[in-house]
Nucleic acid binder design. Structure first.
Lengths: 344, 344
DNA sequence: CTGAAAGCGCTTACAG
DNA sequence: CTGAAAGCGCTTACAG
């Protein structure tokens, strides 16, 4: 590849001039511009983004950190995140570096990535990466709340207790008492928050909260969310004839629906199913259409990007955004006749 | 941020030594290593990826070029691509730079991106970018065949004529004659290829091929694929009581299904629907489950990545991979009694 | 095992 | 409007 030096020599000008022709940061006469451009074209010269980045300390790239387990697919959540983040970033001329690599624990391997800021999914408790980004001076926004709380870090999140409470409250109002909760993996803060929200709802209704009615997803046991929903439903229903189930995601709900079909359970007549939805299309197009709490993951993503982009301009802003879940009534829940003031 | 220079000075060693401690490219004594590591930790030093990339001319990043129209979401196809590419790349320690930025036409804006190779979606006719990557000496693999043909460029693709032929052949064998094809945008080579494959099938069956039975998606008219399927079906059915429709994607098929419900058309009894599927989950979980041609977009993506990674090791390999579509029988097509030797 | 120095390909004050 | 030179933060022969 031709370099700026080659072009400068061939065109009989200095590197600075060639640089300016391409960056337009200072005016260059029309004749020189043309000459340089022609030479550049002939030589097949293209400015080197890496070298430029080093010089100006800016890459116009946003990092999206979402480690995926070896060889597993992106989840619906992750996909919606990519959607949201990408949309916002590309509107502002940024590209997205998808970092799905698992974390190394060799401190020698950490490096300052070629990004101007990063969005990090699923922060863990005491996540050491948060401190690291601070040290590097790279703007960071978390998707999911930091644990422990940290006033100095930006994040976006659903209000997961509210989500848990809302579905519980709704179902209890409908007269359900035996409610199965197919929750996400136990080690995630979302799982904890949603469960405690649900428990609160039971308490508010003076209903008996039974912890053994909540199951957790496990990468080991379940090969896919759909499988999880299916298996869990098949098993749990043997123990107890639940009248309602809360599914962690749309795909989990699909599994539940399938199990119900096999078991000859009518949805919603015999069983109400409600999904914590991360994929609105799916929820809407399945039969029966899923009543759901819309998590608006995509909004989460675009908000995260928006905040990050702002931080990149103004280094010391910190900003949080809580996105409320919205209950959307469709066809998979039995609607009690006393409830009718609501529509989709 | 501390630099390698700061650390070197503070630790009383040369930059080369610090470099070696982090890169492990040459042995450094245990004592020195420890001292350097401690100093680095204290100072919050992290090697600068950009500087390193410039020096070694390698970024460990793969570019995925898929321009999206302003503010529109990623399509199912794109998402599956990301899935496939990401999976393969992360297994080999590469990250993916998602480039959704629209192409500039100002030659002054092209630059050599911080990537070791690129995968490019939807190459256009005479796509100038192909030549550009050649000039830059950046390994390239296309998703979709180059037009005109070019022996020197690697690509992966479905066999879209075969796909068109296969569904046509199947439907015609089932006795259908009025077949509506909801094709993708007219300017895409896939649309052309699939249509010609379909026409071939008609010819092979001695059936009358009527071009006005194929409609094309248009970003202007249709706000989403589902809408496209719905609107197109509603309109077309007024003209002719089609007995079968081929939908460009699962989502388009969903729209068709919705229209059919509204029109009181029974699927598959009155209408057979077949989708050219880019999202197997969707196809399987909708009711009725969609009979489809599985395009295996994810395979396309992982193959593209595999080939690219290989090219990055060995610059002058060129490699193509054609992924055949597979007909998967589910519930949205009326199965003719004479056909029964097939299952999913 | 370690250091000094040149080099990777740009940008940007400073001078004119 | 243009040039000469220092600098961005690393790596890597070359020498010892």
């Amino acid at each position: 590849m031709a370099t700026i030096d080659d072009v400068a020599k061939a065109a009989g000008v200095s590197k600075g001039t060639v640089s300016s022709v391409f960056s337009k940061k200072r005016p260059i006469s029309k004749q020189v511009t043309e000459r340089v451009l022609n030479v550049a074209k002939d030589m097949g010269y293209f400015p080197n983004h890496v070298a430029r980045s080093l010089a100006i300390k800016k890459t116009m790239i946003v990092g999206l950190k979402m480690p995926i387990s070896k060889s597993s697919n992106l989840s619906g959540f992750e996909i919606q995140m990519i959607n949201g983040v990408t949309k916002e970033c590309s509107q502002q001329g940024y590209r997205v570096l998808l970092d799905t690599l698992p974390e190394h624990d060799d401190p020698t391997q950490f490096s300052m990535d070629p990004v101007d800021g990063v969005i990090m999914l699923n922060p863990r408790k005491q996540d050491p990466r948060i401190e690291r980004f601070k040290q590097m001076g790279i703007p960071l926004v978390l998707v999911g709340r930091p644990d422990p709380e940290d006033e100095t870090v930006s994040f976006v999140d659903n209000d997961n207790r509210q989500v848990g409470f809302m579905v519980g409250d709704y179902l209890l109002k409908q007269g359900h008492s035996s409610i199965l909760f197919l929750n996400s993996a136990a080690d995630m803060t979302v799982a904890v928050d949603r469960e405690s929200g649900l428990a609160e709802a039971f308490q508010a209704h003076g209903a008996l909260w039974q912890q053994n009615h909540v199951l957790n997803y496990s990468r080991k046991l379940h090969k896919s969310p759909v499988e999880y929903g299916y298996m869990a439903m098949m098993e749990a229903y043997k123990q107890l004839k639940y009248t309602a189930v809360i599914a962690d995601t749309d795909r989990v709900a699909l599994g539940v629906l399938r199990a119900a079909r096999e078991l000859g359970i009518e949805v919603p007549a015999d069983l109400s199913v409600i999904a914590l939805s991360n994929d609105a299309t799916l929820a809407q197009e399945v039969t029966p259409r899923l009543t759901s709490v819309e998590l608006e993951v995509e909004t989460l993503g675009s908000e995260a990007a928006r905040i990050l982009l702002e931080m990149m301009g103004n280094p010391d802003v910190v900003c949080n955004r809580i996105v409320e879940g919205k209950l959307v009534f469709r066809d998979s829940c039995q609607i009690n006749s006393t409830m009718n003031e609501m529509g989709e």
